[in-house]
Design a protein around this nucleic acid. Sequence first.
DNA 1: TGCATAAGTCCGAGTATCGGACTAATAATG
DNA 2: CATTATTAGTCCGATACTCGGACTTATGCA
Lengths: 141, 141
Amino acid sequence: MNLGLLLFLPYRFMESAVMAELKTHGHDLPLSHARVFQRIGLDGSRMNDLAVAAQISKQTLTSIVDQLEAQGYVRRSPSPHDARVRLVTITDRGQELIALSQPVVTAIEATWTSHLGHAHAAQLRHLLTALVEITDPLAAG
Amino acid sequence: MNLGLLLFLPYRFMESAVMAELKTHGHDLPLSHARVFQRIGLDGSRMNDLAVAAQISKQTLTSIVDQLEAQGYVRRSPSPHDARVRLVTITDRGQELIALSQPVVTAIEATWTSHLGHAHAAQLRHLLTALVEITDPLAAG
DNA sequence: TGCATAAGTCCGAGTATCGGACTAATAATG
DNA sequence: CATTATTAGTCCGATACTCGGACTTATGCA
């Protein structure tokens, strides 16, 4: 099995679990929205950066942020430095999504750790972090 | 950064590279088609299994296989054991996709190996394989 | 000032996706 | 065996997603 698929399957497992958890709490957002939401930085993110990070067109991003905003998860605010730029930030309601996801992620990571062993799980995280440095479009590498 | 995102970013990097390579050779298939194609077994796969593996509805799978078949990448044949079942198999033209992807995957894996070191890269593959055992819906775990 | 570029949005067309309902074939039950 | 339940797969119709093209506004550059 190629390395891409080996990465994909555990990833999707976690993603599905998180989405299901959100859904049971009344947050029924599609995957595409979650993938954008996930990349919003603490200080807010520019629309263009989010589009690059999520690898979708700017038009699609506009549509997704419209909906996230209408549902109260994010807010658009102007950048103080550049009047063209809109910064997307997470609202209190959006923080709920993170709060709900956290325990699910933690639980799954615990399952994986018990399956691999502590040392190996830590190493997995370490190796993946190294890989992300050279594969994330936002890391400009 | 959570483990899901750490898995996702390298995965998508490889996926994008493969899709781009296929496109330059005239195979312009969407991601959803590739994700299905990737799960077709050597002896053929049942429609239902493919839908489960790709986590899409049976209706969507029918549509995708229709298109893959129309483009000559796969073939539907009846199962000798169960007249309800249709086995999806890869045609010669479909094998081209695999042949084109192979060197791209190999090259990226080589890049990653040089970034991580041989032993660590092997370890990464080993750990991910263990994880797939408990996260692939087809593995019935 | 004038021109090129960048950020973001609106519109319209094409497509994807799914729920519901359906057919055909097998499995289970009495 | 006859009857019912379940499974595999498909068709149809409605909804929503996604993107190319064109546009507005703002910044960078000569």
